[in-house]
Write a protein that binds this DNA or RNA. Structure first.
Length: 90
DNA sequence: CGTATGACGTGCA
DNA sequence: GTGCACGCCATAC
């Protein structure tokens, strides 16, 4: 059922775009909302390939609170989150 | 169709 | 606290 996987990626992008400013979601949570709580790997992959400015992918971080990565640069991600009002542990 | 890759998560040494 | 290895899923080749 590749259609099912297709919706998953779509859901991920949709959910990420639904994240309010100043809030952050972990890959695990996003995958959970997308319908596959074990697809956090795919979430990161999809966001990485999906270069869409409408999707605040910088609001998606690891489960431990680490900023993780960003297709535009981890440094930028940290700066953006800080600007949004999100405090990173590291 | 099978293999390889990747912005992860968790467990263990 | 740090580092390594395994497991999971979707996508690309």
């Amino acid at each position: 059922m590749k259609k099912n996987s297709a919706i998953f990626s779509k859901q991920v992008l949709k959910i990420v775009s639904h994240i309010p400013r100043g809030s952050t979601l972990s890959y695990k949570e996003v995958a959970r909302r997308a319908g596959s709580p074990r697809a956090y790997r795919a979430v990161g992959n999809i966001l990485n390939k999906n270069f869409d400015s409408r999707i605040p992918c910088h609001r998606v971080i690891h489960s431990g609170g680490e900023p993780g990565g960003y297709n535009r640069g981890r440094k930028a991600k940290r700066a953006i989150l800080t600007k949004e009002g999100v405090v990173i542990k590291k």
